[in-house]
Amino acid sequence: MSDEQNIAERFVRAPGEEPQGEPRGFLGRLRAEPLLPEAGAGGAPLTAVIAVMSFLAAIALAVFVFISDAAGEWTSELERGLTIQIKGADAETIASQTQEAMRVLQSTEGVLEARAVPKEESEKLLEPWLGKGNIGAYLNIPALIEVRVDQNLRNDLSLLRTRLSAAAPGAVLDDHGEWHERLSAAARSGQLMAFAVFILVMGAGCAISVFAARAGLAANREIVSILHLVGATDDFVANQVQRRFLVLGLRGTFAGLALAMLTLGLTSLLMRAGGGPSGFLPSIKLGPQLFFTLLIVPIALCLVTAATARLTVLRTLSKEL
């Protein structure tokens, strides 16, 4: 038997032998070897752009988390307490009504703690606006009572208000509702802005993926054509491009995340060196919880870019032939 006959027998399909199929299922597609050249889908510039997007998205998400934490602290502090302000024509009236109000509070079910704020402390609260000095000598400063109540009482303060008005006509009960509303609105605005930046970055990721996938497909036109001619499906080609985007995406997003963590760490150090954030500013709390939250960024960005690239390739190829 000649060499040619031997080879011919090896490479002619036997009767009943099925033609070659195609990779089936998720694992089958996963096993397919990468066949596009290394620099085929954008390479380093695309990785750099994804890293920048990942950085911005991570910072936006971190700001969202910090504002949420701070808002939670503000509101829980406000929700825990009430303030009673007692006004009067003179110091004696204020002092007597304060005593009456304290008696009412001590006899009210649901009041956990009531503390009359000393006059010196009240004066200190006004110092930032009126300056140091004997403020009490020329101003009739209202007395303050700080009160902690349980949730039942907080849910219905009408009876307490009535009893206070009867015992101390100059008493005004402030349940911090207005502050609560204002701080919540401010926190919501901050959160919304941070979330909008996060979504915009994801949108930019989609747009860049579309552009890069089209450019990659155009640059690899001959390769894609050969793959088709040897029997590749559009899905196979899309998987090849998607895999490339996942690899580039993972490199870029984790680089961006690392840079964002570094930036947050440095900012936290600078804030601490400057005496820490003031009461109302969100503080930067780094830790495993924040890290795991920020892991959403590389995962989401990789999925978004890879899925967009895949859809772009499938849509582009579907217009051919």
Binding site: H228, D234, L317
Partner: peptide, 13 residues
Amino acid sequence: REALPALRRRIGV
């Protein structure tokens, strides 16, 4: 278009 790859796999060019 989806029917073409299976046919192409039966052709050697």
